[in-house]
């Protein structure tokens, strides 16, 4: 099933929402910078950085790749390694 709206139509409809979401991220990052304490060693910081890199890439499976950034990887030998 294809996307029915044209790219300019979709962009028109989504522009303000996209802008708002990006601003929200920018403000959250500023808020983190202003606050005391440190996130050194917190692996989630690197996940956020990796997710940003996915957003600025040009492939069309960004949502799937962002999901994988925040996922524990699949271990095909899990049956032996689990216990």
């Amino acid at each position: 099933m294809p996307t029915l709206a044209t790219r300019p139509e979709l962009f028109d409809r989504e522009f303000l929402a996209l802008r708002a979401k990006i601003l929200e991220i920018a403000a959250t990052l500023d808020r983190l910078d202003r606050s005391p304490g440190s996130l050194a060693g917190d692996p989630r910081v690197e996940q956020i950085r990796e997710a940003f890199a996915v957003l600025t890439s040009h492939d069309s499976d960004r949502a799937e790749r962002v999901q994988l950034v925040f996922s524990r990887p699949y271990d095909p030998n899990w049956k032996n390694n689990l216990a």
């Binding site: 999901q67 994988l68 996922s71 524990r72 990887p73 699949y74 271990d75």
Partner: peptide
């Protein structure tokens, strides 16, 4: 949910 979904789904399918 969340970070366990991918591995858990693949385990279930296995």
């Amino acid at each position: 949910h969340l970070e366990d979904k991918y591995m858990g789904t693949r385990m279930i399918l296995d």
